[in-house]
């Protein structure tokens, strides 16, 4: 050990070395549920070739991966599976949410689709598009590498800081109103028109 050298200098350099190693050997775990999964496949296939960025080792076992790529919509029945997979991945780990559906529910604003996975698990990188072109995903992987290089620490302390998920709260206000409405309608007391009209009157 270098005598008298301030401890923090030593740590910083180790961080940089670790980050360099990590960022250039990301092992993605493709959680491909829908159409975006096909574009993910296209990214790994002949023309676009994800291997050029050191991230081609798709491992389908979460315990050997450090980058979760959620490609496609996640529905009510699937979300517990996704959460379990996230929990099974060892630290340090990151998550890319690929496609409009995974980021926000996309065109599927329906009863079954989770409106953005970031409400329930942490997300580092969002890739917009429906589906994102392979080039976009490549860019996201490169950005992810930059982020890993920039923010990582050897001990993975950056993960301990945030204890809020990044996305909006699971319940947004208009969702809550709608649920109340439908409950009232079920009770038979109000008609749908009456409740929503009454609310807009009081709000206005």
């Amino acid at each position: 050990m270098a005598v008298g050298l301030p401890e923090n200098i030593f740590i910083t350099k180790l961080d940089a070395a670790a980050n360099w190693a990590r960022s250039n050997s990301l092992w993605p775990m493709p959680f491909a549920t829908a159409c975006c999964g096909i574009e993910l496949m296209a990214t790994a296939a002949s023309r676009h070739d994800l291997a050029r960025f050191g991230a081609e080792v798709m491992r389908f076992s979460p315990r050997q991966c450090d980058l979760l790529i959620v490609a496609g919509r996640v529905v009510m029945k699937m979300l517990p599976v996704l959460q379990r997979i996230w929990l099974q991945m060892p630290e340090p780990k990151w998550c890319i949410s690929m496609g409009a559906c995974a980021c926000s529910g996309g065109v599927f604003d329906t009863y079954a689709v989770v409106q953005g996975i970031d409400r329930f698990i942490p997300v580092d990188m969002y890739v917009p598009g429906c589906p994102p072109r392979p080039e976009q995903l490549l860019q996201a992987v490169m950005d992810m590498q930059a982020k890993v290089r920039r923010t990582g620490t050897v001990m993975g302390r950056e993960f301990a800081i945030r204890d809020m998920p990044t996305g909006p709260a699971p319940f947004d206000s208009d969702e809550r109103y709608r649920i109340e409405d439908s409950r009232l309608i079920q009770l038979g007391g109000f008609s749908a028109a009456a409740t929503s009209a009454g609310r807009s009157a009081t709000q206005g």
Binding site: V75, K77, M78, T110, Y111, V113
Partner: peptide, 11 residues
């Protein structure tokens, strides 16, 4: 099945 049921027909 149903792990990707997203309500197409309702939409």
């Amino acid at each position: 099945i149903g792990y990707l049921h997203s309500g197409f027909e309702k939409l």
